[in-house]
Simulated assay, not measured.
Amino acid sequence: MGQQSIRQAARRAALGEQAQRRRERAERDRRIEALAVEVLTALEERKAAIADCEGRAGLALQKLTADEGLSRAEAAEWCGGELTKRMVATLLRGAAPPRERPEKL
């Protein structure tokens, strides 16, 4: 085998190895990208679920304070000490606007 043939064979082998590494990196990048999308999707779903739950809690607190006449502190107390006054205020702010009541005659 001549010197030129040896060089060509070595060059083909090197190019083949480089091509293989590029394919492996591209496959790895695709896997990483898919997993990153999965993480971000789960976090957005969590954010939406939290917003929904907090909205429902706020509406219930609104009913406790507006309809049942409890103070915010009393409402927090009725919730078994799970809420602080600050949390009650935050949840009430995030709730939908209070439903309109008919005017008293």
Rank of each mutant, 00 (worst) to 15 (best):
Q3K: 08
E77L: 11
R86Y: 11
R23F: 03
E17W: 04
A34W: 13
G94Y: 04
R12V: 01
R28Y: 08
A57D: 09
A49D: 15
P98I: 05
D52F: 13
A14V: 01
L91I: 06
I32E: 12
R72D: 10
M1V: 13
L15S: 14
M87T: 08
A66F: 06
R31H: 08
I32N: 11
R101A: 09
G81K: 09
Q20H: 12
S71A: 10
T65S: 09
L92D: 04
A49S: 12
E77R: 10
G2N: 11
T90F: 06
K85A: 10
K104W: 05
Q8N: 08
R12I: 02
L83I: 04
T90M: 05
L61A: 04
R23K: 12
R30D: 11
E100F: 11
S5R: 10
L59K: 15
L15Y: 08
R86M: 04
G69Y: 00
A48M: 11
E77M: 07
L40T: 11
L83C: 03
I32V: 13
L64G: 01
A73S: 14
L59F: 10
K85M: 11
A48T: 15
T90P: 00
L35R: 15
A66E: 12
E33M: 08
E45A: 00
T65M: 05
G69V: 01
Q8H: 09
A42H: 01
E68F: 00
I32Y: 09
E68C: 03
L105A: 15
A57F: 12
E82N: 06
P102C: 13
M87W: 06
A19I: 02
E27M: 13
T41Q: 01
R21G: 01
R25Q: 14
K63D: 12
R7M: 06
L64W: 02
Q18G: 03
Q4N: 07
R12L: 02
R93H: 12
E54W: 08
A66N: 11
E77C: 07
L61Q: 00
Q62W: 04
L105P: 15
M87V: 06
E103R: 11
E103A: 13
E77T: 10
E82S: 15
G80N: 05
A51W: 04
T90Q: 02
R93I: 00
E17H: 05
R7S: 14
A66T: 14
A36R: 13
A26Q: 03
I6R: 09
T41I: 05
A13M: 07
A10Q: 15
E100C: 09
R56D: 10
R86S: 14
A34D: 14
E100K: 10
G94L: 06
E103V: 15
E68M: 08
L83Y: 03
